[in-house]
Design a protein around this nucleic acid. Structure first.
Lengths: 337, 337
DNA sequence: CGGATTGCCGCAAGCCTTTGCATACTACGC
DNA sequence: GCGTAGTATGCAAAGGCTTGCGGCAATCCG
């Protein structure tokens, strides 16, 4: 029922090989033959069968993308970037959602590896060994995770955390709480150690680590009372979703933001400007991040021998909004003043 | 390099056919042979080559999903539902983002149709003719759009709009503004006419149609001043994103919500509970919607002769939050009181 | 105990495309 | 005008899998 190269060949009065070449190798065929083939192919609505092509070339024209959670705006934006760039490069994108589950992630990656030309793993939660193992089979680039020599699009977490901390410190905050994300998240680990080293540079800063929370709004809601109890005047959250949760429960508890507590998130997802108060956040261009990963992957797919140890680092950018403000002087301060 | 059925056959001491059958047709092969084959396949890490299989069966094991905008939380949720259900049914999902552009949408659909077993079109913006035409080639189900006899997962817009209107009317609102979405959107048209018919049922209600806006936060920001100028005491927006934009600019303009103006959105995306004030919204279970579409599609793919005119209607549910409240009595009212 | 039936399994064709190689033809130079 | 170089095209194989069909052996019945 579908029109095949053979049909086109018959109608155009050439062989299948010529049809194939007219489409793929413009200069290996006489111009007028080529024109004729192209015209008939066009007229008949011929589209090469990807499966058959894949069988012989070993290419599927598809790249895979695995993200922890499609509903998370962070990953939605990355997905958008990946999809648009892939399409521009002639690739389709298969997406899969691991539901933040490392074992599903590995399963997914292995499943896909036979079906795609390359894989983008976005913020993978699984152990390094598994990731590296899958990468043996198939070109792969990572987003937001460093892992062996694997090509990576990442951000300089130390710089980002420093931006946030310096901002808060300038506002007078000295006791700063940290609401962490998944322990399986590389960037969570990175951010925590960045936090500690930045804190070490400023002995007057006291860091309160409140532990790990699921990276959703609900996690922030769960953490909010801990923040209040911690006595911190400012809190930094692993991501904006957590920060949203914090904002929400703090309001319910009657805690003023930023009056009583300043809140800063990470990621700067599109929603961040819309909460009330709007969220101060340090983030990266998410869509760009997705695009960059595809660029690297396509290069790798085209030439697997290309030097793979390419790290593409994007910069954080601090976006100050209404959720962070000067620390309110407490009685003790006033007394000494 | 990859392990093929032939390799497995050699090791297991059977023929390729037997390997194939052991995997696909459990009852056409002797139990112990089957066990042996399965064991070796497992041990060697064999994964059937989808391309080769597709070549002979005509099935790719992939379904396509086309959405207008991956970054829109509405579609992100649908995508999540589609992906998880498809995976459970043994299908991978290729997603594409049309960027709200009808011509890209058609192009995408045609491209994909040769590469996937079925297509889910989510809120397609293109003309009916094109959609129906593509549907001739390939099993297709629509989300949030009715189009000829094509199977659809949709919601009863009339009911949803009525819920919102009745809610606002009960709060005393009589002059209600409508901030519309894309003119190319089927559900936008549906909602507007639902609005008009519900308004017709209540002669005391005055409807002010403010026109069409891009379905993003920016659209709402653009519409907000029109809302203020309209003299309406309540506004209903095509979707939550628009409502977010309204909320944002109204706050900047010093207009109290819901004190001066009540705002109601549609979709009830996850963020809606987090704005301030939180948004009253009428919505559907998005993820369920995605799942349902896959169920229908898979059925259609398995048996293309199945009666296709299946409409799966989901119900709206009004979630009242803080952005809607009783109308504030204006001077005129007080005078007559 | 022979013939028929049943159940497993292997053979081989075919799915559609790409591509190395062979062929036929053109054109050029001597 | 013939040989050679070169170019455009066709032939055929390959790629991994599924599946109809036939073969073989075991089982059962008479």
């Amino acid at each position: 029922m579908a029109v095949t190269a053979r049909d086109v060949a018959r109608v155009a009065g050439v062989s299948v090989s010529t049809v194939s070449r007219a489409l793929a190798k413009p200069d290996e065929v006489a111009p007028e033959t080529r024109a004729k083939v192209l015209a008939t192919a066009q007229g008949m609505g011929y589209r090469p069968n990807q499966a058959a092509r894949g069988l012989v070339t070993g290419r599927t024209g598809i790249i895979g993308l695995i993200v922890p959670d499609l509903e998370n705006p962070f990953f939605a934006s990355v997905t958008k970037g990946v999809q648009s760039r892939a399409r521009a490069a002639g690739f389709a994108v298969i997406v899969a959602d691991s539901d933040e589950d490392p074992s599903q992630e590995a399963e997914l990656a292995r499943d896909m590896s036979k079906q795609v030309d390359g894989l983008v793993l976005c913020a993978p939660r699984g152990p390094e060994g598994v990731i590296v193992e899958v990468a043996l089979d198939i070109p792969m680039v990572l987003i937001n995770r460093r892992c062996g020599d694997l090509p990576t699009v990442a951000i300089d977490n130390v710089e980002g955390i420093r931006l946030a901390m310096v901002h808060l410190r300038a506002l007078g905050h000295r006791r700063i709480a940290w609401v962490g994300g998944p322990v399986t998240s590389w960037s969570n680990t990175e951010r925590l150690s960045a936090l500690e080293s930045v804190a070490a540079e400023h002995p007057d800063i006291e860091l309160v680590n409140l532990g790990s929370f699921p990276p959703y709004v609900s996690g922030g809601i769960a953490a909010a009372d801990l923040v209040i109890a911690s006595g911190a005047t400012a809190v930094l959250a692993y991501n904006d979703l957590l920060a949203f949760g914090l904002l929400d429960l703090l309001r319910q508890r009657g805690v003023a933001v930023p009056g009583d507590i300043s809140v800063v998130g990470v990621d700067n997802i599109p929603m961040s400007s819309l909460t009330s108060p709007s969220l101060t956040s340090v983030g990266i261009p998410l869509v760009t991040c997705g695009r960059a990963s595809v660029d690297m992957l396509v290069q790798l797919v085209r030439d697997p021998s290309a030097v793979p140890a390419h790290h593409h680092d994007l910069s954080f950018r601090l976006v100050v909004r209404d959720s962070s403000g000067p620390v309110r002087r407490v009685l003790a301060d006033l007394a000494t003043a």
